[in-house]
Amino acid sequence: MLGNKDQQCLFYNSSIGINLHDASANLADLNSEDKPFVLKLHSSKGLGKDNVKNEEDDSSLAQQLNDVQQNQSHPIIEDIRERLAKANEVDKKDIKIIRVYAGTFNVVYTLTNLKPIDNQSLLQLEKNLKNEFDKFLSVKIHPLLYRPSFDISYFDERGNKTFPNYSDTYQIGPPERTIPYIQPAGWTGYGLRVLGKYKDGDTWLDPFLHSANWYRAFHGTKNARPEDFGRSDGCIDERYAPIDAMLNIYQNGFEKARTAAYGPGVYCSPDPQWLENSYYVATVEIDTKQGKKKYKCMLQVATNPDGVQFTPDNEIGVVSNPEDIRPYGILIKEV
């Protein structure tokens, strides 16, 4: 995990065949206390005694290195650790290699007692790795969660879900007062760590379809402003304000909407498709090594059935007391 002054970013930990939008795999890795780096090389050529001649040998070498027990030594493993130690400016004993796999040649490693570093230090690390590894390709980082400030401890993999391109609907809420919960088709959900957070227990959210479940809805953060973060000087990057707003809501709770066409309160929608196509959901553009990518993002929220009022068309819900609406997940969709 990297820190940039008061901000943090996440390393994306890839594995064999992983899809960037496979939430369960991503967050299971990101939730690791070891906070792994993934170094990608064009090939293993030049490592150790340089006995690798082709991609087939890369694959067999990766398997061989993974079979080496932690208390055993291997000349290529030792060579990699020495180079990583120099690039990261740490002692060799602080480098732990977790896994090696082929395709390109990938090394997953961690640093003991990793301390936060700023973006300038990250750029220096990349230069150092290029100097140490002739076949350096990249260090993989999740493209959307890189800039926004999400600590891995905020996430709960039990809430991760990649939704299919069709919407299932469930009736949720108190008996005889249920309303439809429409699942967000085509989105990837990242669960937030909220179980055990509130004094009234967890049945507002879990188990799913419990009679005490709160209603499910969605909240967009496109209209975030500096004052939403306690800043009146405008010193935030407006491009990423919608993501920073989601972090702020998770940490500090909701605030009432500045514009209140249907009365004072926090606004949400039980219809994810309507909200996605509305003015309230932001599209964030991220520069990646594969070019610019655009993502939509919104919050999954739960609303107290006794604290929310819906418009006649059921497209908008108004929660007069911010304590009656809680975030429980982040939704991301590449567009």
Rank of each mutant, 00 (worst) to 15 (best):
N13Q: 12
K115F: 00
I179A: 13
A185D: 14
I172N: 08
K161T: 13
S44D: 00
K197R: 15
G253T: 07
P312T: 01
D237W: 02
P75T: 13
K199Y: 08
I16K: 15
S60T: 15
D6I: 13
A224L: 00
S269R: 07
D237K: 05
R177E: 15
I243A: 15
L247A: 15
P322H: 09
I98V: 13
S14P: 12
V100M: 06
I95D: 09
N131M: 07
R83K: 14
K256V: 12
S59H: 08
L122K: 13
R193I: 12
E78G: 04
D22T: 10
E285I: 14
R326G: 01
I152E: 11
I77K: 10
P327C: 08
G253L: 00
F150A: 08
S121P: 02
D287N: 15
I95Y: 01
A212Q: 12
T188W: 06
D34P: 00
L137P: 02
T188H: 09
W274T: 04
A185I: 15
H42M: 06
N31P: 01
F11Q: 07
S138V: 11
I330T: 05
L47E: 02
L114H: 03
L144A: 02
S153M: 13
V318N: 06
P174I: 03
L205P: 04
V319F: 00
S269F: 02
A261W: 14
I236N: 01
D34R: 06
E255P: 03
D168S: 14
V319I: 15
Y280V: 06
T112V: 07
K93I: 12
F133I: 04
Q7C: 06
G201C: 03
S24R: 13
K292D: 01
S149W: 00
E78C: 02
D237H: 04
L111Y: 00
E55C: 05
S232A: 09
P184H: 07
N252F: 11
L111T: 05
K130Y: 02
R193G: 12
L125C: 08
S14H: 10
N4S: 12
S138K: 13
D271N: 14
N128Y: 07
D206T: 13
D57S: 06
A260C: 12
N321Y: 02
K199E: 14
P36I: 09
G201N: 03
A261V: 13
N51C: 09
N314F: 08
I141C: 11
Y240A: 09
D271T: 01
V108E: 15
E255T: 15
Q309H: 12
V100R: 13
D151W: 06
F11G: 03
K5F: 14
D50C: 03
Q251R: 05
I325V: 08
T203D: 07
D228T: 04
G234F: 00
S43I: 03
N213R: 00
W274Y: 14
I236F: 07
